[in-house]
């Protein structure tokens, strides 16, 4: 039996300890905001925050996060009003929206680490998150907006 802490809540798991965290979140815990896009740490759709770091849940096993705090998009802010979420809405960032939970988690981790990232730092930090709809211009502007106050 493995016990995980996700969005402040204890969750138990008695299945395969190697199960990728992504599928535990989605199929077991019902936290479907975290998305599957590649399964190979190539797209960032599955990004969650573990302790303070952005992590790809598709290549992280449940046993890897025992004793750590896992935060998903559902737990980023109690009312969904994290500066990044607000900036995303203000600039109408999403198109299809599928990549956006991952983008938002990545951006939140970036700002936690570096509250005032410059243009190049934003582009570098967000480069692991693909948006096939091509919302990059707005994502970049929204990260900037979130960092300067929404």
């Amino acid at each position: 039996m493995i016990t995980l802490k996700i969005n402040g809540q204890q969750k138990n798991w008695d299945g395969d300890p190697d199960l990728p965290l992504l599928w535990f979140l989605r199929d077991e815990a019902g936290l479907t905001g975290t998305k599957y896009g590649c399964g190979q740490a190539l797209c960032g759709a599955c990004t969650v925050i573990v302790d303070k770091q952005a992590v790809r849940a598709c290549v992280t096993s449940v046993s890897d996060v025992v004793g750590r705090e896992v935060t998903t998009i559902e737990g980023l802010h109690p009312t969904g009003d994290h500066a990044v979420q607000k900036a995303w809405r203000q600039l109408n960032v999403p198109q299809c929206g599928f990549c956006q939970a991952g983008q938002i988690m990545q951006a939140a981790a970036l700002l936690n680490d570096n509250p005032k990232p410059n243009h190049d730092q934003i582009r570098e930090a967000m480069a692991g998150n693909i948006c096939r709809c091509g919302c990059y211009q707005r994502i970049e502007n929204a990260v900037h907006l979130a960092s300067t106050g929404v």
Binding site: K35, I73, L76
Partner: peptide, 13 residues
């Protein structure tokens, strides 16, 4: 828009 930013927008999967 809001659902997308808080993870409650529902897609196929």
């Amino acid at each position: 828009l809001r659902d997308i930013t808080v993870g409650t927008a529902r897609y196929g999967a």
